Amino acid sequence: MFKRLMMVALLVIAPLSAATAADQTNPYKLMDEAAQKTFDRLKNEQPQIRANPDYLRTIVDQELLPYVQVKYAGALVLGQYYKSATPAQREAYFAAFREYLKQAYGQALAMYHGQTYQIAPEQPLGDKTIVPIRVTIIDPNGRPPVRLDFQWRKNSQTGNWQAYDMIAEGVSMITTKQNEWGTLLRTKGIDGLTAQLKSISQQKITLEEKK
């Protein structure tokens, strides 16, 4: 169930391209415009997507990853294993993690069937560096609404905000991946996880038929 919630949630996290980005210092504006741009692209490019579902990787690479804190999220997933990894191991892992996100997020976007969304009203940021933004996803086919909290983090150097995690039903996506990959990290280390991520990233994206 959580895996499905995570995939549905990713439908609204794909941010804007650099040329049309919203105010990078306001995570609420980023979330709002990102959702609108993403849904528009999914709707307008269905012919290309249906002809070649792996085209979704391109959308992810162009529109999402430049505005997601990939390395920060990847380091959180590694936890204690990050500090013990060599620079070469980290570089290989982050490259594999990025390719994994292209496949995983692309597969999530393949679930698009006309969903709509509501974003919580903007709250004062103050001096906060981590801000959760509640998004409610509404399914046109009558499924119950899904309420999610996207975690946005302020870059201490640039002042810009980027998304790095999502919490559904009190469970963090980062925590879920830590639990899912924990045994592999304990037995085969970061190299074993890197190899698995490379394998997963090679899987073809498949479209979910409308139910």
Rank of each mutant, 00 (worst) to 15 (best):
V171W: 07
K43W: 15
M1Q: 04
A88V: 05
F94E: 10
P47G: 05
V146Y: 10
A51G: 09
A21L: 05
N44P: 10
L30Y: 00
L64C: 03
R134C: 14
L64I: 14
P121N: 13
Q178I: 15
D127H: 00
S84H: 08
G79M: 14
P144I: 05
Q202A: 13
P140M: 02
A51D: 02
G114V: 12
R98H: 04
G142N: 11
M166F: 03
L185D: 14
L10R: 07
K83H: 02
K43T: 06
L64T: 07
V68D: 11
A73F: 15
S201L: 03
L184D: 15
M173C: 13
Y117R: 12
P27V: 10
K188A: 04
Y100F: 03
G142R: 10
S199Q: 14
L193W: 12
V60A: 07
V68T: 05
N52Q: 02
Y82N: 00
A18M: 09
A195T: 09
E208K: 10
P144L: 08
D23V: 10
I167E: 03
G79V: 05
T136R: 06
W152R: 05
M7V: 08
R50M: 02
A108T: 10
V77T: 13
P15Y: 08
V12C: 00
T187S: 09
D54A: 00
P53S: 10
T176D: 14
Q62T: 14
Y67D: 06
I190Y: 13
V146K: 13
Q80P: 07
T187V: 05
A88S: 06
E99K: 14
Y112M: 14
A14W: 04
W152I: 00
Q24L: 04
E33R: 03
V146W: 04
K128Q: 05
K154W: 10
T183V: 08
D165K: 14
Q151Y: 05
G79Y: 05
P124T: 04
A88I: 15
P132S: 11
E208Q: 13
L184C: 13
V131R: 09
L207W: 09
A34I: 07
K177T: 10
T58H: 15
P53L: 15
A88D: 00
N52P: 08
P140W: 02
Q89P: 10
A51R: 08
L16Q: 02
S199R: 11
L56E: 13
Q80W: 12
A19Q: 00
V146S: 11
Q69R: 04
I119F: 07
L207H: 01
S84W: 05
A75P: 09
N44Y: 13
A96M: 01
R50N: 08
R153E: 03
G142Y: 05
Q162E: 14
M31H: 05
Y81A: 07
T38R: 04
E180H: 07
L10E: 02
S156E: 02
V70I: 15
L125T: 07
P140D: 12
F150H: 02
S17Y: 14
L207T: 07
P27M: 03
A34Q: 15
M6Q: 08
L56V: 11
I137H: 15
T116V: 13
Q202K: 07
S201Y: 11
E99T: 09
P144N: 13
V77L: 13
L56Y: 01
A168Y: 11
A14E: 01
E33W: 12
A75V: 07
Y81G: 03
D149Y: 06
A75G: 03
R41P: 07
G79F: 04
G159S: 11
Q123E: 05
I200G: 11
S156I: 03
G159F: 01
W181H: 02
A110P: 02
E63A: 04
K29Q: 09
L197N: 07
A108N: 04
R41V: 13
Y164D: 13
A95K: 13
T136W: 07
I59G: 07
M31K: 13
K210T: 05
E208F: 14
A92Q: 10
L78Y: 09
E63T: 04
L65A: 06
I119G: 11
K211R: 12
N52G: 01
K128W: 08
Q118Y: 02
I49E: 02
Q162H: 12
R153I: 05
M1I: 00
I174Q: 06
L42K: 01
Q196A: 15
D61Q: 02
L125C: 12
I119R: 05
L185H: 07
Q107A: 03
Q178C: 04
A14K: 00
A168D: 14
Y28H: 10
N26E: 10
M173H: 04
S201H: 09
A75Q: 00
Y81H: 07
D139L: 06
P121C: 13
R153W: 05
R186P: 13
S156G: 09
G182A: 09
T86W: 08
E122G: 10
Y93S: 14
K3Q: 09
N179Q: 05
Q24W: 03
G106N: 15
S84T: 04
E208N: 03
F94H: 07
L109R: 10
Q203R: 09
G192Y: 13
Y81P: 03
N160P: 11
L64F: 14
I205F: 14
G182W: 11
V60E: 08
S172T: 02
P144H: 09
A73N: 13
M31T: 09
Y105K: 02
I167F: 14
T38K: 08
Q36P: 12
Q202S: 11
I174W: 12
M111V: 12
P66I: 02
G170I: 14
I138T: 09
F2V: 09
W181V: 11
L42Q: 15
Q48N: 07
Q103V: 04
K210L: 13
L197P: 04
N179C: 07
V146I: 03
S84Q: 10
V60M: 00
A35K: 15
M111D: 13
E45T: 04
T129S: 07
D165N: 13
R134A: 13
I167Y: 01
Q151K: 15
I190E: 04
I167R: 02
V171T: 10
T116A: 08
T20C: 02
T187F: 13
W161P: 12
V8H: 01
Q157E: 10
K29A: 09
K29T: 09
D139R: 10
Q115S: 13
V12D: 12
Q203K: 13
P87I: 15
N160R: 08
T183R: 09
T176H: 11
G106A: 00
F97P: 04
L16D: 03
K128G: 07
K198H: 12
I138L: 13
Q162Y: 06
L148Y: 15
R50W: 04
I133N: 10
T183Y: 13
E122S: 12
G142L: 10
T206I: 01
V60P: 13
K102W: 14
T206Y: 15
I119K: 04
Q151G: 09
G114N: 05
K128S: 04
L193P: 13
Q48L: 12
A21F: 04
F97D: 03
Y82P: 03
E169D: 12
V135A: 13
E169T: 05
